[in-house]
């Protein structure tokens, strides 16, 4: 078994270097495909982060009438907090609400006229975050029931539902695109490796004639494919490592509002995806290519 492994790996190594041009072509194809795959994974994870950020924004807002005693507001906050659908309840008094408003204006670069009036037109509010943006339960009814305390409940249910169906669609579309690209990549890589195998069909024929078992013919080629995959993965990761900084900055300036982070998690995921895909594509591609010559 050990001898078989040593033989296969030695033959794979020889095969790779003695057909350097073909091996190089296969490695470059592999690198390009893996880059495409990695780019898609980065894009999708960025989109996912964006979608999650938007979904987090979903909340129910209830505006409080001016001059309501603090005790009644506290009671309402406690009542809403007790509901099973609710994850977080924040109370913003008039000063805080005004400060938030001014902050938003400043961020959007619009002139702030709120100090001109000398009064505070912004009502205090209760902000309710839901555990699941789909499930409102009795939150809105509870808030509306507080007569005299709540002036208005910002009903965003249908807006949110529309938003959620859009984000859901985008997620599904992302997975479908990833699958399609994956299949395309598989076909291209298999074809490239097949070229390298076809160039050596005579060698396979001779191996068969001198009594090599299928395993002895197949595994050197699979290891060679794996070698191509690993090399492609290494080059791809090298390029990604070099490109990570400028891309990260580019994305940051493009959509500054959405905090997409190229964090350690994504890097680990990418290494896993690229190396795994390289290994699998190379190995499977070679196995499929050699199969043609073994079935007789």
């Amino acid at each position: 078994m050990l001898r078989f492994l040593a033989f296969s790996i030695r033959r794979a190594w020889q095969g790779f270097w003695r057909n350097a041009v073909m091996s190089l072509a296969a490695t470059i194809t592999m690198t390009l495909m893996l880059l495409m795959l990695a780019g898609l994974v980065i894009g999708l994870s960025g989109m996912d982060a964006g979608l999650r950020f938007i979904e987090q924004k979903v909340e129910v807002q209830a505006f409080i009438a001016d001059g309501v005693p603090q005790s009644r507001i506290d009671a309402l906050v406690a009542q809403v907090r007790a509901l099973p659908e609710v994850s977080e309840v924040d109370y913003l008094d008039k000063q805080q609400a005004l400060a938030q408003w001014q902050e938003q204006l400043r961020q959007q670069g619009q002139p702030d006229y709120s100090s001109e009036t000398g009064t505070n037109p912004i009502p205090a509010s209760i902000q309710v975050k839901l555990k699941d943006p789909h499930v409102y339960g009795t939150v809105i009814q509870t808030l509306q029931a507080a007569q005299g305390v709540v002036t208005d409940v910002l009903e965003t249910q249908h807006v949110v539902d529309a938003l959620l169906s859009v984000t859901g669609f985008l997620r599904t579309a992302g997975v479908v695109v990833l699958g399609l690209v994956g299949i395309t990549v598989l076909f291209i890589v298999v074809n490239t490796i097949r070229l390298a195998v076809v160039a050596r069909s005579e060698e396979i024929e001779i191996m068969r004639l001198v009594g090599a078992s299928d395993a002895f013919i197949r595994w050197p080629f699979i290891f060679e494919g794996v070698l191509v995959g690993l090399l492609g993965a290494a080059v791809t990761l090298g390029i990604l490592a070099l490109a990570a900084q400028p891309i990260g900055q580019g994305v940051a300036t493009l959509i500054g509002q959405v905090p997409i982070q190229f964090d350690r998690n994504l890097a680990e995921e990418l290494i896993l995806v690229v190396v795994g895909a390289g290994l699998a594509l190379g190995g499977v591609g070679a196995a499929i290519s050699v199969r043609t010559y073994l079935i007789r």
Binding site: R3, F4, I206, M207, V210, G211, A212, S213, F216, I217
Partner: peptide, 8 residues
């Protein structure tokens, strides 16, 4: 040698 190598 190849003829023997492939037979292990």
């Amino acid at each position: 040698a190849f003829a023997l190598e492939v037979t292990g």
